[in-house]
């Protein structure tokens, strides 16, 4: 019986992934701020890359989507969830950074009157990664994407942008290289909610695809923001700020300090990848999937420090 269920699951996920938009679970973490909680998993054929926290904020005049989802189907699911929640039209899709689990739902929102907003470096990063991501989507998730599914921002944030949704103001900040080189955070003035997306990982081991020292620098600045709640890209829908960043900061500082030591002692990247920070394994999910790669990225950055 169990086998039979699995088989059915395989059957359905393989053939109906794009046909049916599953209902999306959303939680209103503050007035008008809705978040769908992702799962701690690598993108694969079962979850279709629908792993990140995504959601939207509702104003009097406009809805702003914050990250559109990990697949076109999840984008559609988010869109219908928005329609079921409010009559207010969707005016903006904010992409917090280039990673597929945050942007592959974009295509579901593409229509006149909707603007796509991202960091000034998002377009270039997307252009460079798209050919590789396209292939990877097929290989890892069995997802056939077309060039048109990659939607670059039509409005880009140089440093700070204010977005008036009617009765509430969002402050979008373009950060220096941290999680990626195109991270954008969103601060909702009305509820003092700081939507950090992948600048904040909780439970899921942080992934460095930008700059380790840059990330720590941005965290220092972010911690000074008086927010009631922070929304991570991976983890619970909302947490107390800046307490929410403690574990991530500890992990990144540990990596920085240990790798600096390795470099000072003349050790190689391979040695560092095998040994650094293994004691932190128990604290994080997906540790074995990302920790070594974090070391490689951080090592290549830190060896240029002196």
């Amino acid at each position: 019986m169990f086998k039979r269920l699995i088989c059915f699951a395989v059957f359905f996920s393989a053939f109906t992934a794009f046909a049916m938009a599953e209902e999306l679970n959303l939680k209103e973490v503050a007035t008008g701020v809705f978040v769908h909680q992702g799962i701690h998993a690598l993108p694969d054929r079962q979850n279709h890359g629908e792993i990140a926290n995504i959601g939207f904020i509702v104003g009097d005049r406009c809805v702003a989507v914050i990250d559109s989802g990990g697949s076109p189907a999840q984008g559609l699911a988010l869109k219908s969830a928005i329609k079921a929640t409010t009559k207010t039209p969707i005016c903006h899709v904010i992409n917090t950074h280039v990673h597929p689990d945050h942007v592959y739902g974009n295509i579901a929102f593409k229509e006149p009157g909707v603007s796509f907003i991202g960091h000034r470096k998002l377009t270039q990063s997307l252009a460079a990664r798209a050919p590789y991501y396209l292939e990877k989507a097929g290989r890892d998730m069995g997802m056939t994407l077309k060039n048109e599914d990659f939607i670059a921002p039509d409005k880009s944030v140089d440093s700070i942008m204010e977005l008036d949704l009617g009765g509430r103001k969002l402050i979008l900040t373009a950060h220096g290289p941290a999680h990626t080189d195109n991270d954008l955070s969103v601060y909702d003035d009305k509820t003092q909610t700081l939507w950090l997306a992948d600048l904040l990982f909780m439970g899921h081991v942080p992934v460095i695809d930008g700059s380790l020292t840059g990330w720590l620098k941005e965290l220092e600045k972010l911690k000074k923001i008086e927010a009631r709640l922070a929304i991570p890209g991976h983890g619970p829908v909302a947490s107390e700020w800046p307490k929410a960043a403690e574990a991530e900061t500890r992990y990144l500082e540990m990596l920085r300090n240990e790798i600096r030591q390795y470099i000072k002692q003349g050790k190689t990247m391979e040695q560092a990848m095998a040994q650094v920070g293994q004691s932190a394994r128990g604290e994080w999910q997906l540790f074995d999937d990302f920790h070594k790669r974090n070391i490689a990225t951080a090592f290549a950055e830190l060896e240029w420090e002196d």
Partner: peptide, 10 residues
Amino acid sequence: GGCSAPIGAD
């Protein structure tokens, strides 16, 4: 797996 790509991070 994951979100990485064969492109420099910074």
